[in-house]
Amino acid sequence: MSENKCCCCGTAEACVDERDQKLQEIIAKYKDVRGALIPVLHEAQEVYGYLPMSVQKKISEGLDVPLAEIYGVVTFYTQFSLKPKGKYKINVCMGTACYVKGSGIILDKLKEKLGIEVGECTEDGLFSLDACRCIGACGLAPVITINEDVHGRLNPDDVEGIIESYTKTENK
């Protein structure tokens, strides 16, 4: 196979990654806008799912903001991620109410079940695990979210079944 061929569509024509094109549009939209870095990072993360160095470099070049500053912002806010997220993004609430109701144990159980640490993604790309600040559902404590689904009033034994329900959907 020729080296010039595109990795995704196999055509000989050099094909521009669709996501890169979207990123350039985002940058163009915010160019010369003061304080545009955070909205650009948000939108870029929506496009790529995370913010790897290659994306941060493009933003640095496009907005003329130093890479070190961008990396500082990305690592400051927990909603930005340097690593790819899974198809199912698990967030374990570590707010005060959830914490005293044992969300730490729920988190440990999830780590054990998935074999990953906080901030990581399973090898099959299905699940990623994060701990987050209070999501405002204290009445349901301890609570986790998986994408848009909320699972509340959990005890550690529920974890196994919840994860399996998503795996089953995938295997259908």
Binding site: P66, L67, A68, E69, I70, Y71, G72, T75, F76
Partner: peptide, 19 residues
């Protein structure tokens, strides 16, 4: 030059280079 900046937050804050 912006070789260094402040990274992370809270107790984990460090002054270091990007990545």
């Amino acid at each position: 030059v912006s070789a260094i900046d402040t990274m992370e937050r809270g107790f984990n804050t460090t002054v270091t280079c990007a990545f």
